[in-house]
Amino acid sequence: HRQALGERLYPRVQAMQPAFASKITGMLLELSPAQLLLLLASEDSLRARVDEAMELII
């Protein structure tokens, strides 16, 4: 289940942060499945989480 969510998330994360897409997707997969579904449904929520992840990385 998580694998399938990751496969759906990755291209969207890659479009926002290509250099760190794998790392960010891995970080996002730590969230609950319900939270992941919310990110897939909301571009704004996904962008906010990706921005948060980038702050942790750099």
Rank of each mutant, 00 (worst) to 15 (best):
H1K: 11
H1S: 13
H1C: 09
R2W: 05
R2F: 04
Q3A: 12
Q3E: 14
Q3P: 10
A4N: 08
A4Q: 14
A4Y: 07
A4V: 11
L5I: 13
L5S: 03
G6F: 15
G6S: 13
G6I: 15
E7P: 06
E7D: 11
E7H: 06
R8L: 15
R8K: 13
R8M: 13
R8Q: 15
R8H: 10
L9P: 01
L9R: 01
L9G: 01
L9K: 01
Y10W: 10
Y10A: 06
Y10E: 04
Y10M: 07
Y10C: 05
R12F: 14
R12Q: 12
V13M: 02
V13Q: 02
Q14I: 12
Q14D: 06
A15R: 08
M16I: 14
M16E: 04
M16T: 04
Q17D: 03
Q17H: 11
P18F: 03
P18M: 03
A19P: 03
A19M: 11
A19H: 14
F20G: 02
F20D: 04
F20N: 06
F20W: 11
F20C: 05
F20A: 05
F20Q: 06
A21H: 01
A21L: 01
A21I: 01
A21K: 00
S22P: 07
S22M: 14
K23C: 06
K23D: 07
K23G: 04
K23M: 11
I24Q: 00
I24N: 00
I24F: 01
T25H: 05
T25N: 03
M27Q: 04
M27T: 03
M27L: 09
L28M: 04
L28S: 03
L28H: 00
E30F: 05
E30Q: 09
E30L: 07
L31H: 05
L31N: 04
L31A: 06
S32Q: 10
S32A: 12
S32V: 06
S32E: 13
S32K: 07
P33D: 15
A34K: 11
A34R: 06
A34M: 10
A34P: 09
A34T: 13
Q35Y: 13
Q35E: 14
L36T: 03
L36S: 01
L36V: 13
L36H: 02
L36Q: 05
L36N: 01
L37Y: 10
L37G: 10
L37D: 14
L37K: 09
L38D: 13
L38Y: 08
L38T: 10
L39Q: 00
L39C: 06
L39N: 01
L39T: 05
L39R: 00
L39G: 01
L40Q: 02
L40K: 00
L40N: 01
L40H: 01
L40D: 04
A41G: 07
A41D: 13
A41Q: 11
A41F: 08
S42F: 07
S42V: 06
S42Q: 08
E43R: 05
E43V: 06
E43F: 05
D44Y: 03
D44G: 08
D44V: 10
S45N: 12
S45E: 12
S45K: 14
S45T: 08
S45L: 14
L46G: 00
L46E: 00
L46K: 00
R47L: 05
R47E: 04
R47H: 06
A48Y: 08
A48C: 07
A48F: 09
A48P: 03
R49M: 12
R49H: 11
V50N: 00
V50F: 01
V50I: 10
V50D: 00
D51V: 11
D51C: 07
D51A: 14
D51Y: 10
D51N: 14
E52N: 07
E52P: 00
A53H: 05
M54G: 01
M54T: 06
M54H: 07
M54Q: 03
M54N: 02
M54F: 10
E55A: 13
E55S: 13
E55W: 10
E55H: 12
L56I: 10
L56Q: 14
L56A: 10
I57G: 01
I57S: 01
I58K: 11
I58S: 10
I58D: 08
